[in-house]
């Protein structure tokens, strides 16, 4: 598989899909820092639980709810 098929924005992942965080886009540094503090760092395992009305995902054992713009900034390598 080419890398583009294996990597996805978290916002584009289906509920139930999981993978590892590849990177967090830094166009908004505050957001990236906050995500990092909550454990969303490269290498962390994420599983998408729900997409509507907000994105909810599991990162390790932390359940996080975020708005779509935030989910778009998380790049995940699918398993």
């Amino acid at each position: 598989m080419s890398p583009s098929e294996k990597t996805r924005r978290l916002s584009a992942m289906r509920p139930g899909a999981s993978g590892r965080v590849l990177r967090v886009m830094r166009e908004n540094p505050d957001r990236a820092d906050r995500l990092m503090a909550l454990g969303v760092t490269p290498g962390a395992t994420v599983t998408v639980l729900q997409r509507f009305p907000g994105v909810v995902f599991l990162c390790d054992h932390t359940e996080l709810a975020v708005e779509p713009a935030v989910a778009r900034a998380i790049v995940v390598e699918l398993e």
């Binding site: 908004n28 906050r34 909550l38 359940e63 975020v66 708005e67 935030v70």
Partner: peptide
């Protein structure tokens, strides 16, 4: 406003 990023307790 800040973005919505929230941890859900168990």
């Amino acid at each position: 406003r800040s973005e919505f990023i929230m941890e859900l307790p168990p």
